[in-house]
Amino acid sequence: MGGSSQQFRYWMLILPAVALMLIFYVFPLIQVLWISVTEPVPGLGNYEELFTSDFLHKIWWTTARICLLTTALTVVLGYVVAFAMAHVERQQMTMMMFCILLTFWLSVLVRAFAWVMLLRTQGTINEFLQFIGLIDRPLRLARNEIGVVIGMVHFMLPLAILPIYANIRTIDAKYVSAARGLGGSAIQAFLWVYLPLSRPGIIAACMLVFVFSLGFFITPAILGGGKVVMISEYIRVAFEETLLWGKATMLSSSLLFGVFLLLAIVGRFVDLRRVFGSS
C-alpha cells in the first residue's frame, strides 16, 4: 500500500527535527518541571510561595508593569517606524532596514552600557539638557525603572517593527484611497481603515515584545542598577547564587505557564495562526 510507505517516509524526514526538539527542548523542560516539585522536598511547596510570598508578589508586579509599559511604548514607536518604512522609496526603505538590523546585531551588554553612559546623572543627555538650560538638576534616568524601560524599548524595537512592517506592507493603498474618496479625512482614513487592517501586525508585535520582555535580565540588571528586580533576574540569582533550584525552576515553570495562558486568552479573541503568518 502506497499510503503507509508514504507515511513512513514522511516520519523519517521529520525525525531529525523531532529528535532535536525532544533532546534540547522537551527533555530539559520536563527536568525543570520535575525539579520544581522535588527540590528541596517533594510536593507543591515551591508553588505555595507564589501565593504567600509578598516579596515574590512584588517582583511579579514589577515584571508585569515594566513588560506592559515596554510593550506599549515599543509597539507605538515600532508602528511609526514601520509605517514610514512602508511609505518611503525602496532605497530609503533598505537603508532603514539596515539601520534597524544593525542595532539588532550589537551585543545587548554593549547597548545596555551605552545607555548607562547616555542616561546617568553625569551622562550625555543630562549634561546636554543642563547646558541648554532646560533643567537645573540632572534627571534620574538610569538606575530606576525609567532606565530599564528605555533600554528594553530600544532592544525590542526591531521585534515590533518587523512584524508590523510585514503586515502593513500588504495593506492595499486602494482602501485608504477609497476612504478618502468617500469623504474621510486623512485621520479618519487612518483610524477607521488603516489601523484596523494592521491589527494582525500589532497583535503579533505585542505578543512578541511582551513574551521577550518577560525573559529579560541583562538590561534590567545593568540599567536598573540593582534596584529593579524582574522575575528573570531573580531566577538567575536563585539558580547561580542562592542555589535555590526548587524556587528557580518553580518560577521558570510559572513564567512558561503564564505565557501559555496569555496565548490562550489572546487566542480567544484573534486568530493566532493568521497573526503569525500561516493562513
Partner: peptide, 15 residues
C-alpha cells in the same frame, strides 16, 4: 474628501 464625489474603484476596494 472635500469633493463629495462617490467613487466605485476598480476591484471595488470594499473595507
Amino acid at each position: 474628501d472635500k469633493r463629495n464625489f462617490g467613487m466605485v474603484f476598480q476591484g471595488y476596494a470594499l473595507f
